[in-house]
Amino acid sequence: MARYGFVVDLTTCVGCNACVAACTTENETPYWDGLYRTHVEDVSFGSFPDSGRAIIPRLCMHCENAPCVRVCPTGASYKTADGIVLVDADKCMGCGYCIAACPFGARYRYEKEAVNKANEIFGKDAGHQAPHVDKCTYCVHRVKEGREPACVAVCPAHARVFGDLDDPNSEVSKLVESGKAQPIGDPGPQPKTYYVR
């Protein structure tokens, strides 16, 4: 069984937002409300002369010890055997507890109005048919078909790497094992999305 993880290489990311566009199209996220499964943060920090600018793509960390899964009362938030944290929209009551619990801001409400709008834009076969809490799935539907997540596939700078952390030959595993890629933020939930800085 695989244990999927992700590496974002901040040294090569150019901040083109192709990943955001690809994710939005692939997963029909409510971009009209400014809601996405992945973002590219353009942040300035410090004050002159000790200042800087960073472009930081972010997505769900698919934590080993996911706080969102722990607090979800209906079991709609769950972790698959291969370590991907998902939301079962048919069981989600949309209480928002997982959104409050997530230390990485990876979740948002897919409201009823957004579902209606998605049906208008994407047609009756739109992927979101009921209001629920939404998040990055590592494009699990593509992974099942042996394809990469949409954001990885379109990244022109190879700043996004996806793979099996337990496979010593995978690029993602090599980056993590070498220590080049490390988690950022709260280490408590044991995030599986790593960053090369």
Partner: peptide, 17 residues
């Protein structure tokens, strides 16, 4: 405040919450 109140019937599925 719930997005989908009907799914509240599943509230019993995680006693850890």
């Amino acid at each position: 405040d719930l997005l989908n109140p009907f799914n509240a019937i599943f509230f019993w599925r995680n006693p850890g919450s």
